[in-house]
Computed example of a mutant assay.
Amino acid sequence: VQMLWIPFWAAGIVNGVGHYWGYRNFEAQDASTNLSPWGVIIGGEELHNNHHTYPTSAKFSVKPYEFDIGWAYISLMQKVGWATVKKMPPKLQLGAVKPVADEKTLEALIANRYEVMAAYARGVRQACKEEIAALQARHADVSVLTAAKRWLHRDTEKVPAVVLPQLAQVRAAHPSLDKMVAMREELRQLWLNTTQSREQLTADLQAWCRRAEESGVAALREFSLRLRSAQA
């Protein structure tokens, strides 16, 4: 029955609502969202942001609380020899912290960039939370920062123009957040800049880690240390 209604729901509903309402695990190239953490009605297509982030993956669920009924079917068929899984979402492997980032670190960063940037976004949100708490302790106005919080970790081109003045105001008032936003874009350039050699990109990554760890921002230092432990 699901196979019969999936074309209607996927094309008519998910491709519309799934780019407007819901939550995002990853900063995919488009505006796709997950409609629900439980993909049970449309074969897992409710996890639309996950699907658009890893379009060739047989499994759409990536978080412990997410459920993809399509993956349940595939897993069952795999157990009885009726299916072979060829692609899964990549998972960042961590090891000992390296003295400096190297080409393998760069390789791991690029291969797992969506997961890496999702972790960076969590750091930005936590930093926002701490800044809001500090403002509240001083009985200061938190409305602008609260409104801007959802956009500080997003790619600039995906931020509505009407929000940009708020973001500029927040960045001017909160140097640590400004630093995190600026360094996020610098990090993103490591895989967007396709004209640089691997050696140059590795040097750029090393410089990024050094600046992050010397920034005085705890979240940046912790992120950089985690990044230096990434393994290809």
Rank of each mutant, 00 (worst) to 15 (best):
residue 86 K to P: 05
residue 221 R to C: 03
residue 182 A to F: 11
residue 65 Y to G: 09
residue 150 R to P: 02
residue 108 A to W: 08
residue 230 A to V: 07
residue 163 V to W: 05
residue 18 G to I: 10
residue 58 A to N: 07
residue 206 Q to W: 06
residue 128 C to P: 08
residue 42 I to Q: 02
residue 26 F to V: 10
residue 129 K to H: 14
residue 169 Q to W: 00
residue 124 V to C: 02
residue 114 Y to N: 08
residue 207 A to C: 01
residue 62 V to T: 15
residue 129 K to D: 14
residue 82 W to P: 05
residue 56 T to A: 11
residue 42 I to R: 00
residue 58 A to V: 04
residue 18 G to L: 07
residue 189 Q to L: 02
residue 184 R to K: 12
residue 185 E to D: 13
residue 214 E to M: 04
residue 200 Q to M: 01
residue 232 A to C: 03
residue 12 G to P: 11
residue 204 D to M: 01
residue 22 G to W: 05
residue 111 A to N: 10
residue 185 E to P: 03
residue 46 E to R: 07
residue 39 G to D: 01
residue 174 H to L: 06
residue 147 A to I: 05
residue 210 R to I: 00
residue 165 P to E: 06
residue 88 M to C: 02
residue 217 V to H: 05
residue 9 W to A: 13
residue 216 G to Q: 07
residue 29 Q to L: 10
residue 171 R to A: 00
residue 108 A to E: 04
residue 105 T to W: 01
residue 207 A to L: 09
residue 41 I to A: 06
residue 160 P to T: 07
residue 99 P to F: 05
residue 69 I to D: 08
residue 25 N to T: 06
residue 172 A to C: 01
residue 63 K to I: 00
residue 92 L to I: 15
residue 196 Q to E: 09
residue 63 K to R: 15
residue 9 W to C: 11
residue 71 W to Y: 14
residue 5 W to E: 06
residue 134 A to E: 14
residue 146 T to H: 11
residue 28 A to L: 02
residue 140 A to K: 13
residue 140 A to M: 14
residue 73 Y to N: 04
residue 49 N to P: 10
residue 195 T to D: 11
residue 7 P to S: 03
residue 197 S to G: 06
residue 7 P to G: 06
residue 1 V to H: 10
residue 149 K to C: 13
residue 97 V to I: 14
residue 178 D to N: 15
residue 93 Q to V: 15
residue 87 K to E: 12
residue 4 L to E: 06
residue 106 L to D: 01
residue 121 A to Y: 04
residue 232 A to P: 07
residue 194 T to C: 00
residue 64 P to W: 15
residue 57 S to N: 12
residue 189 Q to M: 07
residue 87 K to T: 15
residue 114 Y to K: 12
residue 156 T to V: 12
residue 82 W to D: 10
residue 187 L to Q: 04
residue 94 L to E: 05
residue 110 I to F: 00
residue 21 W to H: 09
residue 52 H to D: 10
residue 138 R to W: 01
residue 230 A to E: 05
residue 158 K to F: 11
residue 61 S to M: 08
residue 91 K to W: 04
residue 215 S to C: 08
residue 81 G to F: 10
residue 66 E to R: 15
residue 228 R to H: 06
residue 164 L to P: 01
residue 171 R to Y: 00
residue 59 K to N: 08
residue 146 T to Y: 10
residue 98 K to W: 03
residue 206 Q to G: 02
residue 122 R to Y: 03
residue 87 K to Q: 15
residue 150 R to G: 12
residue 175 P to H: 02
residue 157 E to Y: 08
residue 36 S to V: 04
residue 126 Q to Y: 09
residue 132 I to K: 09
residue 82 W to F: 09
residue 226 R to C: 03
residue 190 L to A: 03
residue 20 Y to G: 12
residue 120 Y to I: 06
residue 48 H to W: 14
residue 41 I to W: 10
residue 153 H to Y: 15
residue 174 H to S: 04
residue 157 E to W: 11
residue 43 G to D: 05
residue 162 V to Q: 14
residue 2 Q to G: 15
residue 206 Q to I: 12
residue 173 A to Q: 11
residue 99 P to M: 02
residue 141 D to N: 13
residue 210 R to Y: 04
residue 161 A to P: 01
residue 143 S to V: 03
residue 120 Y to V: 03
residue 69 I to G: 07
residue 52 H to F: 02
residue 121 A to R: 15
residue 77 M to N: 13
residue 1 V to F: 11
residue 57 S to F: 13
residue 23 Y to V: 07
residue 176 S to W: 00
residue 128 C to F: 09
residue 230 A to H: 00
residue 100 V to Y: 09
residue 60 F to M: 13
residue 53 T to S: 12
residue 5 W to N: 08
